[in-house]
Amino acid sequence: MKFARLGLLAFLSLVFASLFLSAGPAPAVLAQQPTPADDEVNAIAQELFCPVCENVPLDVCPTEACRQWRELIRQMLAEGKSEEEIQQYFVENYGARVLSEPPREGINWLVYVVPPLAFLGGAYLLFRAFRTWQRLAREPEAEAGSGSAPAAPPEDEYAARFEAELKKRK
C-alpha cells in the first residue's frame, strides 16, 4: 500500500501543523447527543479489522482511513445502532474480511469443522494404535508363560534405586 502510506505521511504532516497551530485546548464538541466515548468505540473497533491494512485490528490502526472508520462507528453509536448493526454495515460495505473470523456460512464452515475432525481422527488412530500395541504386548507374554519383562532402561534404573531408597527411609 505504497500510496496509502504516502497518504499517511501527508496526514501526519497535517497533524503536526494542527499541533503547532492550535494554541488552546481543543474546542469542546457541541454535539446534540452525548458523544460515545473512545472506549465504547474501541470496544466495537477491536472486533473489526482494518479493511485496507492486513491483519490490523481497527482499534489500534494508525492510518487516516481507520481514523475515519472509528469516527463512523462513533457516529453510528450516537445514532443508537447496535454492535451487530455496525458489524453488518461494515461487512456490506467493505467485505467479510473486516470480521475477525470468517462468517459462519457456506464454505467458511470448513474453517471451524476441519480442525476438530482432524484432531478426532488423530485421536482415534492413536487409540487404535494403543490397542494394537497392548494386544501385541500380551501375546508374547502368553506364549513365553512367564513374560520376560523388558530390560529397564538406564534412567529407570536410577528411578528404581531412587524409589527404593525413599522406601527405606520411611
Binding site: K2, A4, V91, E92, N93, G95, A96, R97
Partner: peptide, 19 residues
C-alpha cells in the same frame, strides 16, 4: 459510488492500492 463489499476492486486487482 462506493465499492460495496470490495466486489468491484476484487474484479480488477487482488491487492488494490489507490489511486
Amino acid at each position: 459510488g462506493p465499492d460495496m463489499g470490495t466486489e468491484i476492486s476484487r474484479i480488477f486487482n487482488r491487492n488494490l492500492g489507490v489511486p
